[in-house]
Design a protein around this nucleic acid. Sequence first.
DNA 1: ACATTAAGTGATT
DNA 2: AATCACTTAATGT
Length: 216
Amino acid sequence: MNTDTSIEAILGDSFGYLFEKKLLKEIGEVGQMKQFPAQQTLIHIGDTISHMPLVLEGSIKIMTEDKDQSELLLYYLELGDTCAVTLNCCTTKAKSSIRAVTETETSILFIPVSMMEKWMIHYSSWRAFVLESYNSRLNEMLLAIDNLVFNNLEERVYNYLRDKAIITKSKELVLSHQNIADDLHSSRVVISRIMKKLENNHQIKQGRNRVELMKI
DNA sequence: ACATTAAGTGATT
DNA sequence: AATCACTTAATGT
């Protein structure tokens, strides 16, 4: 899982159908593979980004943060994803406007910005990948905004739990009401009441620091 | 046994 | 829906 040969293997599996062999080889040569445990902050707001991440394993939570440290979840990055906001930061040398935290154990391949500019010019498959990725990130954000504006908190909480279950590939989640409140920019008390409701409607079962989804 | 942290509840805005 | 103040329950030392 951390030898050079398996970087190639993972690359082939995840991106083989996307990129030509020559580009895959360059990615393998230039990319730095790194592993992170769950719940590790990778990018703080205000950080300057020098490398672009390609997610090979696990998932990453992308969120905004305001002055009082309260957060709002924007979207998740999963296998084969890259961060659109980072793409922007890379090309314009701007500072990060988001925070990135690993949600599960994660393997990431870091690619220097200089390389990605070169590839944009020389590989149409790379260009297509970057544009596609930018597009799907934008769509996910639109969904998140839609959810935020048009759904009540109860639906937002349920959607949040469902998404989390999908990402961790488990119906049993380990998290506190406070965690949910932070991600959804709400308060613990309110979440507790909503969770009670969901439990009474047999949509979830819950205990201290754990939630089980009944349907998926 | 005691302290700490998570979750539940009624009242108020 | 948020905040406060307080209770109850679960866990760690």
